[in-house]
Amino acid sequence: MSEYERTRTMPAQPEQVFDQAANVAQLDAWLPDELHVRAAEPPAVTVHEDHPDQDTAALLRAERDQMRIEWGTREQGSYAGWLQVAGIGGGASEVTVHLSFFEDSHDPGERAACAALDDSLRRLEEQVRMRVDNPAG
């Protein structure tokens, strides 16, 4: 089993960050480019991975009262993850994202996993900034 975790500070209230991160219709805006999520009957979702062009049945749960999102594969149980948002005062938040790979064949390796997590957090911050700077948009 391999686990990877990254944290990033974002200049927004935790509720704003969580609402952006948990918006299923906008997950593609911050997830890695090769992953696409389609909502089914909650908490069920389908994750499409461009390479190797396959769909995977998954679950996605967002708990606003805990500022936490959890996800993972349904049938094969090959990976799981979570995102936690915490307020740190002064109108800022700390966002931590964690991935666990239970099968070596699904583990992309430390370098690739950490780069994907860093990129996803950067993209989430961009989405949050757009929302905060333009609340009507």
Rank of each mutant, 00 (worst) to 15 (best):
N23M: 01
E63A: 15
H48D: 05
E5M: 13
P14Y: 12
A116M: 08
R38H: 07
T96K: 14
P43F: 03
N134T: 12
V24G: 03
Q54W: 01
A44S: 09
V95H: 10
Y4H: 08
D104S: 09
R64W: 04
A116N: 05
Q127Y: 06
R122C: 06
G137H: 09
E49D: 02
E70D: 09
G87Y: 10
A80L: 04
Q20C: 12
P135Q: 05
V37H: 04
M1K: 14
R64Q: 06
W30N: 11
A25Q: 11
E75Q: 01
A80N: 14
P108F: 02
D119E: 13
E126N: 13
S93D: 06
I69S: 06
R38W: 03
Q26D: 11
E15V: 03
G77P: 00
E3S: 15
A21N: 12
P32K: 09
G87K: 08
E94P: 00
L83C: 14
Q20V: 15
E63R: 09
M10G: 10
E34F: 01
A136M: 01
G109M: 03
L124Q: 04
L35S: 13
R74Q: 15
D19F: 10
D53F: 00
A21Q: 10
A115T: 04
G77N: 07
A62K: 08
P108D: 06
A116S: 08
A116Y: 00
Q76T: 07
D107Q: 11
E41A: 10
Q54D: 01
P32C: 06
M130P: 00
D133R: 02
A92F: 13
L60N: 12
V45F: 01
F101A: 07
E3Q: 12
N23T: 01
E94C: 05
W82D: 14
V17D: 03
V128T: 05
W71Q: 07
E3M: 12
Y4I: 08
R64V: 03
E34V: 02
D50T: 05
